[in-house]
Each structure stands twice: as C-alpha cells, then as structure tokens.
Design a protein around this nucleic acid. Sequence first.
DNA 1: GCGATTTTGTTTTACATCGAACAGTTCCAT
DNA 2: ATGGAACTGTTCGATGTAAAACAAAATCGC
Lengths: 157, 157
Amino acid sequence: MPVSASPDRQDRQVRLDAGEAEQTLGYKLRLAQILAFRGFEQRLTDYGRAPRYLGLLSVIRAHPGQPQSRIAEAVALPRSSFVTILDQLSAEGLIERRPSKYDRRANGLWLTPQGEDVVGRLMQEAQRYEAEMTRDMSPEEIASGLRVLQKLIDNLS
Amino acid sequence: MPVSASPDRQDRQVRLDAGEAEQTLGYKLRLAQILAFRGFEQRLTDYGRAPRYLGLLSVIRAHPGQPQSRIAEAVALPRSSFVTILDQLSAEGLIERRPSKYDRRANGLWLTPQGEDVVGRLMQEAQRYEAEMTRDMSPEEIASGLRVLQKLIDNLS
DNA sequence: GCGATTTTGTTTTACATCGAACAGTTCCAT
DNA sequence: ATGGAACTGTTCGATGTAAAACAAAATCGC
C-alpha cells in the first residue's frame, strides 16, 4: 500500500498513483486503453483513419456482408456514431456499403480490395505494437490477461 | 480459431468476433474499457460528473495540493482538456483550485469536504461494480489481470 | 392478412475531447 | 544578473462522439 504524500509538498519525481482506485481493474483498464490506443494511432500517421478503426475493420473482414447494426454492436459503438465513421472509411476507399439481399433496410459492409490490403498491413503493425507492449511478459501471462479481459467483456455485455 | 461465417449469410444469433484482432490485448482492452466505463456511468445518474471522472478525483484525494499538470499527466489527459473538466467539478462543488505556495503559475487541486464525501461513496459503488465485473474470477485471476494491465501501463508510459 | 411494434440507417443537435497558440512565471546557462 | 528556453494554466477552433427523433422496411400478434 503506497503511503500518501504529505499534503502540499511538491514531489515532482514520483508518478502519482490513484490511491484506493489503484487496485481496481476499472482504473487501470482505462489508463492502459488510452495509452495503448493513442500510441498506436500516433505511430501510424500514413494510414488515414484506419488505425483508429482497425478493430471494426477487422470485424468486417472476419464477417463480410453483415449489416451496420451488427458490426456496430460488436465494437460497442452507437449506430449514430457509426454512420460518420463509415462515411469516412468509405471516402478513403477502404469499405463499401452494399444493399443487403435479405433486408431492404440494411447495408452489408465489405472491405474493398484496397481495404483488405491496408487492414492486412495494419494487423502486422498491430502485432508488432502488441509485442512491444508485452515485451516483459510471458506467453502465459499474456494469455491470462486475454482471459481476464474476455471475462470482463462477457460479464458486461 | 473460430471459422468465419459464409460471406453473406445473416447469422443473427452469434456474437461477431474480430477475427485476427480477437487474440490481441489491444482489441479486448478497448472493448472492455468502453463497456466497463459506460456501464458504471449509466448506473450512477445521481452523482453529476463525478462517476466519469472518479479516477482523477481519486488521484486528487490521494495527492491533495498537487498542480493540475501532474494530475492530468497521471490520468493521461491533455492539460487543455483538463481545464473544462475541472471547471465542471469545481462548479459542482467537488474540488477546489488553490494557488500553489511554491509556484505562482500553478494551482493546487483539493477535494472539498463534499467532494470527499461523494468520492468516498462512489468508491464503494466502484467496488461493488468491480465485484460484478469479476464475479466469475478467482482472486488470483484478478490479481494477474491487474499485473498485466500495470505492465502495459509501464511499457506504454 | 393487417395494424401495431420493432428494427435499420440516417439527420440533427448537443456535448466531449484535443492540438495549437498565448501570457505569465520559473528555470537555466552563461 | 540577464536573456532564452521550458513550464503552467488557459482560450480558441476543429474534430469526435452520442442521444433523440425520423422515415422506410421488416416483424410480430392475433
């Protein structure tokens, strides 16, 4: 248990902990996610909006032709936010909306050939980044982290 | 390895995975964080902006009197974003900016008595929420998750 | 079959977040 | 000591995100 600094002293060197919250998954989850995401995005400035939305692009790649609403739900984004994002990815030539054969309301989402190419290359970058983030972890440790995160996702869904 | 759906079929029941990205910490990290954060915030509608910013409030509580820039850095927020947030928390009577004794540029941040009270109660809520998120995990599993997240944070800082 | 309800994608509007530029202060090298 | 560089909090403009309301289409209950 880290002892709190004497109130008012400027101890410039020490990284500030979050006190009680420091022991919670919620706090660390947020911090890690912000840092990971920002770092990845800022490293890849030559790929347009694809790095930020690599997750959803990856879902589209794995499930081509699925309607917007299902993809949006998979990545936990509101449908209304999704529209703008798809407009951008579409304008960059990475994805396509095609009318669904099964439902005249729905658009199926597809990667363009260029989208396939970009996503493929970005996934390699992501793997590299992942390796850096986890440079001091054993495979078992990483696997346990993945398992914990998956359980969190399941319990929160 | 989950097999991809046939490219146009509408399989409504199955939750869509992210294909290759599904095995990465980056993807799950983001998903878990979004779900956890939104769930916590939407549950606590009677506490103003405090639930969203509980993390930074907790840092202030653990390190009263520290300048804005240090707190902002601790929670990985840009100083410019921080200003608006502090204005709001201040308007709600949860925090106070007091001129630093050591640096005439800086404001020390402090919780008001009311802020102490609200943060205290919200931390209890957070613990409850944490328990729900981790309901099917052993203490060891949770500890390993915390350790992985901490290493990620360290490696990304 | 038919009307009420739900679902899909979209627009609109409000809000949140961030980078860049700025003035006041402190730090630092000489 | 003094001038330049770095730091602190702030404002401003641009961008990202989300809730609410809407029309068109599908689904459900009977």
